[in-house]
Amino acid sequence: MKLDTNWQASEQTSINLNDARGSIVFRNVVKKYGAVSAVNGLDLEINRGELVTLLGPSGCGKTTTLRMIAGLELPSTGTIAIGGTDVSRLPATYRNVSMVFQSYALFPHLTVLDNVAYGLRMGGLKTPLAREKAEDALSTVGLAGFGPRLPSELSGGQQQRVALARAIVLEPEVLLLDEPLSNLDAKLRRYVREEIRTLQQRIGVTTVYVTHDQEEAMAVSDRIIVMEQGKIAQAGSPADLYHSPQSAFIASFIGEANLISCAASTVANGDRVAKIGDYRFTVPGSNVSEGQATLVIRPAAISFSTNADEGMPSMITSAAFLGDRVLYSIETPIGRLFYVEYTSSIRHPDRTEINITLDPAKLHLV
């Protein structure tokens, strides 16, 4: 599939969403299906104009939460407010919310222009004005001139943009994106996620994005809400979640990390020391409780040392060449670690004996 990448330069639009109210507030929301709680006591606030991603494994409650914002599901208990109005019991047709589905859900027998104008026409807008607004929306997403085509004549990335145009033409308070890139290949996903972020920032609409892809979430979000078993496990900026995870679950789910069990104790200056066998690692600024803990070792914390007198004597058990980087698996005295080295060739073959050191500033305890 070929992607148009020049649409981001287009500033033509008559759609003004900069005044969108769009705040979203959940208060103690529970959603049950029989005896099963898909969402359990959710308290959540999303500010006007934010792009917030709901992230988590399958079954964590993220899609149910999105569908409750849309009005496709109603909470069992608790309240949901959009723009300061309680919408807890309002069906989808009475909410100023637009949703983009992972399947695009375009009408195959309608032209691109008629697909985008469909919601406006169903809302009672006369056809000439609906088509005019649809043309503006297509221009906004870089598809000016594509109106006469059928969806089958477009690439996957272009179809996704049509779905976005159909959503934003309604000038919603809130834009909802449900796994919007799951049907695209890896390279195209990178392009389209940049387009979505650029468009969202330009029109200023509050956006809630659902994905299970942590790299995707980190690339597009102002904030990420990581969910686990129907609750918020941790919320914050991508940098906050990566550098300051509050649990082993967050550390493993946001970015790549080696997780090693350890015993944590306090030293005189208040830093923590992680004890693993005969090895001690100082972790500055940690507030984890003393006792059993988990040492989070990001690949960036690991360095190969040529000095046999420092670090831990280790052995490379495998080296996978991935083009611009090599992924090493290393057997160490504290357990097996993986390490990513950005290089154009494999410099350390399997069974190479090395010493490795860990940068204390890049270690974390949970």
Results as ranks from 00 to 15, higher is better:
residue 133 K to V: 04
residue 126 K to N: 14
residue 129 L to H: 05
residue 156 G to P: 10
residue 141 V to Q: 14
residue 141 V to C: 13
residue 157 G to C: 04
residue 149 R to I: 06
residue 142 G to T: 04
residue 108 P to I: 09
residue 109 H to T: 00
residue 138 L to K: 15
residue 112 V to G: 12
residue 139 S to P: 08
residue 163 A to R: 03
residue 148 P to F: 15
residue 120 L to H: 07
residue 151 P to Q: 04
residue 135 E to Y: 13
residue 133 K to R: 08
residue 158 Q to E: 13
residue 159 Q to D: 12
residue 151 P to Y: 01
residue 140 T to W: 14
residue 121 R to N: 06
residue 111 T to V: 00
residue 151 P to A: 01
residue 120 L to W: 07
residue 125 L to Y: 00
residue 144 A to W: 11
residue 117 A to I: 01
residue 131 R to K: 09
residue 117 A to C: 06
residue 114 D to R: 13
residue 158 Q to G: 13
residue 122 M to Y: 04
residue 111 T to A: 11
residue 137 A to T: 05
residue 123 G to Q: 02
residue 117 A to Y: 03
residue 160 Q to R: 04
residue 129 L to M: 11
residue 128 P to M: 06
residue 147 G to A: 06
residue 158 Q to I: 05
residue 119 G to C: 04
residue 144 A to G: 09
residue 121 R to Q: 10
residue 126 K to W: 07
residue 156 G to F: 06
residue 149 R to N: 09
residue 157 G to T: 00
residue 148 P to K: 09
residue 167 A to M: 06
residue 129 L to Q: 02
residue 122 M to E: 11
residue 153 E to P: 06
residue 132 E to V: 01
residue 118 Y to W: 07
residue 164 L to C: 07
residue 126 K to Y: 10
residue 161 R to H: 05
residue 161 R to V: 01
residue 156 G to K: 02
residue 112 V to P: 14
residue 145 G to W: 11
residue 139 S to H: 10
residue 130 A to W: 15
residue 156 G to L: 02
residue 116 V to R: 03
residue 119 G to N: 02
residue 123 G to W: 00
residue 128 P to Q: 06
residue 145 G to F: 00
residue 159 Q to W: 00
residue 136 D to F: 07
residue 145 G to C: 06
residue 137 A to E: 07
residue 163 A to G: 10
residue 111 T to R: 09
residue 138 L to Y: 14
residue 135 E to R: 12
residue 145 G to Q: 10
residue 120 L to K: 06
residue 139 S to G: 03
residue 140 T to F: 09
